[in-house]
Amino acid sequence: MSGIFDLLTGPRDVRPVPLAVLAAAAVAVGIGAWEHAHLYHDGYSSIRWIGPLFLVNAIASLVVLLLLIARRPLAFAIGSLAISGPSIVALVLTRNGDGLFGFRESGYDAAAGLTLGAEIAAVLLTVLGVVLARDQLGVDPPPPPPEDVRTEVLV
């Protein structure tokens, strides 16, 4: 519980460059979410498991975007990776082997290509933003404690 609290009360400001990269990641997350929501209403809502997951993706993405706007960059980064990573895996799974939850598709049409591209961009940009702002986001390990300085007392 304290971990979630720390995320929401953690560092709020990052430098302009990593913030711009995270904002670009947010745009990619938004595109992926819009496409998922659009496909949900375009017939996927009736597909068992897949339909509800499309809706979960869109709603979770909306929350994550609001986290970045509310100056919670670390929470945004974790949320972005938690949404986009599994989305990429799911997209690939539906086109290979037994599919995902028994649902299979072939090839990548425009909607699938746009979604996959957006999710990959979201992952790459989020990782880049975190790397650029790692010192501000507390990703780096804490600095070692100062050496024990012995003071000689002159009598």
Binding site: G30, W34, A37, Y40, H41, I59, L62, L66, I69
Partner: peptide, 24 residues
């Protein structure tokens, strides 16, 4: 600026989620 951005995100993405102009 943040409030305006949040409003845009909620209206555009939220509207698509609830099915307003889903882009059929």
């Amino acid at each position: 600026v943040r409030w305006v951005l949040a409003a845009i995100v909620v209206v555009v993405l939220g509207g698509t989620i609830v099915g307003i102009d889903p882009g059929g």
